[in-house]
């Protein structure tokens, strides 16, 4: 395992003092790889926090060019990059923040062709994709490969997050056996909502890698920022879940 440099010991000084983390936990972060699916409202902030925390390698998947309507929440996109590839904006902003980490930018969204390879590169996956096809695909592959997946989602002033650990917890398909019949690709939301749940998602990834604290296993944290109501729903593996059954068989 690669050790921390003198410079890194200085940069991460404040978090090295977090009980349960320390130098060993920081070295685990340095030697880890996290895949973030899409760097939109959620993934931008997840990636930013993980880069700041010193996760050694970030694999970031996001297609398309920066649009004006990205700018209220996708905090790694900037006005000067309108019309240019989003992933370039993401890489540029993250390198400004932390030039010591490896950033692997993939100018594609998760799809059937790339999901196995991308998940295979990661120790932990964080999902912030807007389409359920991508989310269920990521869930299937993470469970298949036994990789923890932090699932973050938002709508209007609401958000939810859970951490899926294959073999230990419910998966996304346990919660929602079928894809919703109608999902509006564009929905109301503030960047502060996506940023809130994204920071929680980054914290989940950090805890999983470093090995301290209690992850949101079999718990779905829901929040309504309109009323500042937070709830924890106890969730469970669903009998007959095809995704979990496939993992048990293999």
């Amino acid at each position: 395992m690669e050790k921390l440099t003198k410079e890194e010991l200085s940069i991460y000084e404040w978090q090295l003092d977090v009980p349960g983390h320390g130098k060993e936990g920081q070295e685990r972060l340095k030697n880890s790889t996290v895949l973030v699916s899409r760097c939109g409202g959620l993934g931008s902030v997840v990636a930013y926090e993980l880069a700041a925390a010193g996760v050694g390698t970030l694999v970031l998947a996001h297609a398309g060019n920066v649009k004006p309507s990205d700018l209220n929440r996708q905090l790694l996109m900037t006005h000067d990059w309108l019309g240019k590839p989003r992933i370039e904006s993401v890489e540029r902003r993250l390198r400004e923040l932390n030039p010591n980490i490896n950033i692997i930018g993939v100018p594609e969204n998760i799809n059937e062709d790339n999901v196995a390879n991308l998940v295979g590169m990661a120790d932990v996956v964080v999902d912030g994709a807007p389409l359920f096809e991508e989310r269920f695909l990521m869930n299937r592959e993470a469970v298949r490969q036994g990789k923890p997946l932090v699932d973050c989602a938002m709508y209007e002033l609401e958000a939810q997050i859970t951490t899926i650990v294959p073999g230990e917890t419910a998966c996304l398909s346990c919660l929602y056996p079928a894809q919703p019949a109608a999902w509006q690709r564009r929905f109301p939301v503030f960047g502060a909502v996506s940023g809130t749940v994204a920071c929680l998602g980054a914290m989940e990834a950090i805890k999983l890698i470093s090995g301290f604290g209690e992850a949101l296993k079999n718990r779905l944290l829901t929040m309504d920022l309109r009323t500042m109501t937070f709830n924890t729903i106890n969730i469970q593996t669903r009998k007959g879940c095809e995704i979990c059954q496939e993992q048990q068989v293999s």
Partner: peptide, 10 residues
């Protein structure tokens, strides 16, 4: 009884 529809990112 709480009824939740799936939500996503973006």
């Amino acid at each position: 009884l709480m009824l939740m529809s799936p939500i996503a990112g973006g």
